[in-house]
């Protein structure tokens, strides 16, 4: 399994190929969303909605052999694409790796300029929630 940094570098080069054209970048992000693992309908409930996102985002996490396995969904395609990037970087890693992760790919691909400030806040809320799940699992493991 590649390291968090290696995957981040992969993403950065993929976005570099797209260049400065915002429209192709948005289309690419939307396509990424189609790759998300299908989200269980039973989990599409209020408690799993991330606060601070303008679009609806559902996120759940499971303990898979001591690693965090995330599943997420959204009612908007661009947001789905953004979540799929985060999941690609953080999924099935140890809580410590997730908590310590410095997700600099977001700034390095200039995501703020692509998705705007409101969605950037939403993205920050998603990362926070993903890290909180990791922290919860770590606390459980150390108990």
């Amino acid at each position: 399994m590649s390291s968090i940094q290696e995957i981040q570098n992969e993403i950065i080069s993929e976005f570099e190929i797209l260049g400065d054209d915002k429209e192709s970048t948005i289309f690419y992000i939307m396509e990424l969303g189609a790759n998300l693992e299908s989200f269980p309908d039973s989990e599409r409930v209020e408690e799993n909605i991330i606060k601070g996102c303008q679009s609806k985002v559902w996120l759940i996490a499971d303990d898979k052999d001591g690693r965090v396995h995330y599943q997420a969904d959204s009612n908007t395609d661009i947001t789905k694409g953004l979540i799929s990037l985060l999941i690609r970087v953080l999924n099935d890693r140890t809580p410590k790796e997730i908590i310590d992760a410095n997700l600099d790919f977001i700034n390095r691909i200039g995501m703020g300029g692509i998705i705007g400030s409101q969605r950037s806040n939403g993205l920050a809320a998603m990362i926070k929630q993903m890290k909180l799940y990791a922290l919860a699992l770590q606390t459980k493991q150390n108990a």
Partner: peptide, 14 residues
């Protein structure tokens, strides 16, 4: 089939 927000972002790209 599309969320209005996504449509807005894509139009902004243009």
């Amino acid at each position: 089939g599309m969320h209005p927000f996504d449509v807005g972002v894509m139009l902004d790209a243009r």
